[in-house]
Design a protein around this nucleic acid. Structure first.
Lengths: 221, 221
DNA sequence: CATGGGTGTGACCGGTCGGTAACTATACGG
DNA sequence: CCGTATAGTTACCGACCGGTCACACCCATG
């Protein structure tokens, strides 16, 4: 008598059909952006909601209020589109850093706390984690062009955070920077896996504690 | 003149065909375990390598040196199999905790450091991160039975780590526990996204620094 | 030797995938 | 007003997906 001979016909792993997406077509009318831009931003959203492998090009095109042919005229393949959406997200993140710098000029510590606060807010706002990191998890085929985009993005983020920690004048800026990076990345995936009542609920306090401990003259006795 | 009209016919998002997997069939002969167990452990490995959506039931069955019918006689659906592999991994993790307890009886602090060291080793050894967390990232369909398995697992892990921190007698055990959880989760996905030269390279030091700072009477001035 | 449960085989199903072809409709700049 | 470029439409392709069927097989137990 073997175990688990139950629950047939679930189908929940299969992709999302165009019909499931259509109702959201006009949620963000995007006021007649160029088709290409509509496709990119729609793909961003659908990749994030359903996963890269979980949504088809047909559904993306339809949700973007266009069609597959037009999509393929702008992007040679789905992989191309994936890379483009990741680059798009990269640029948004880069803009966030510029904004942060503008908000707290000449005050690195305020910038660092601003960073933590913004990340915590972002964590609370969306339930899908970092698109770039999720893509890295989802796309296992090594050599996939997306990996280069992801790595470039993560490297840039790391550099900026490390530079910020250095500007604050903290002891061991690389260690603090990488600690904060891991806390952030971990908070996002943890929220996906465990829900908002999991470890991620203490993300902000964990970051502040880490920063405080590195601002002390030395944490070792 | 629009951008990126290049690179057609990549296909790298498509699933792995049985033929691609067959050569590895005998890598781990598993010495004629029962078909059911061969399927579970093979599925574990292939899910981890290719992602849950990236491998088909046919390929799993073939790699397990059996066939699709037998697979479906033991597991009513692919989703069933997914859940079973996640439960399998959960049990392995649970066994790891027991082992840890046996290695350092009556010495919570050694146990905590042992945990960090083991996690760091695991991080160095495998390149695929936490299977349960990866599944959470990959399976966006809410209501998927795997989510319950994942949540149960993560909850158990969190409880054990928090109990350990409490036993150590640290200040704010929940905060340290969740900090370590996030560091670990973050290190794994960061390694996937950024590679082994990214933030994850400082995972061990980050953990030790966190523990040290919580062992101080107080980190706040 | 029979019988019956677990296993292997191969064909098959409807559906979706990523991607393409051929043709039409629209917009815009000269 | 025409030519060109872009966008929309429909149908199609081969491949693969998760899942099922009927049937032969093996082998232990009675």
């Amino acid at each position: 008598m073997s175990r688990s001979l139950v629950s047939k016909n679930s189908k929940s792993v299969s992709n999302v059909k165009p019909a499931d997406v259509r109702p959201e077509k006009n949620d963000c009318p995007q006021l007649k952006l160029a088709p290409r831009d509509r496709i990119v931003s729609t793909a961003c959203e659908l990749f994030r909601q359903h996963g890269i492998r979980g949504i088809g090009v047909d559904a993306i095109a339809e949700a973007a209020d266009t069609n597959k042919m037009t999509l393929y005229r702008h992007f040679g393949s789905k992989d191309d589109l994936i890379c483009e959406t990741l680059r798009f997200k990269s640029e948004q993140a880069s803009a966030f850093w510029d904004e942060l710098e503008a908000q707290h000029p000449n005050d690195p510590l305020a910038r660092l706390h601003g960073w933590v606060k913004a990340r915590a807010q972002c964590l609370a706002d969306n339930q899908y984690g970092c698109d770039l990191a999720n893509a890295a998890v989802e796309l296992k085929e090594q050599g996939h062009p997306a990996h280069a985009v992801i790595e470039t993005f993560k490297l840039a983020q790391r550099r900026r955070l490390e530079a910020l920690c250095r500007d604050v004048g903290v002891s061991e800026p690389e260690l603090l920077s990488d600690t904060l990076s891991m806390l952030m990345e971990g908070a996002q995936v943890s929220k996906l896996a465990t829900g908002s009542e999991g470890p991620s609920m203490r993300f902000l306090r964990a970051c502040e504690a880490a920063i405080a401990s590195f601002c002390q003259p030395a944490a070792t006795p």
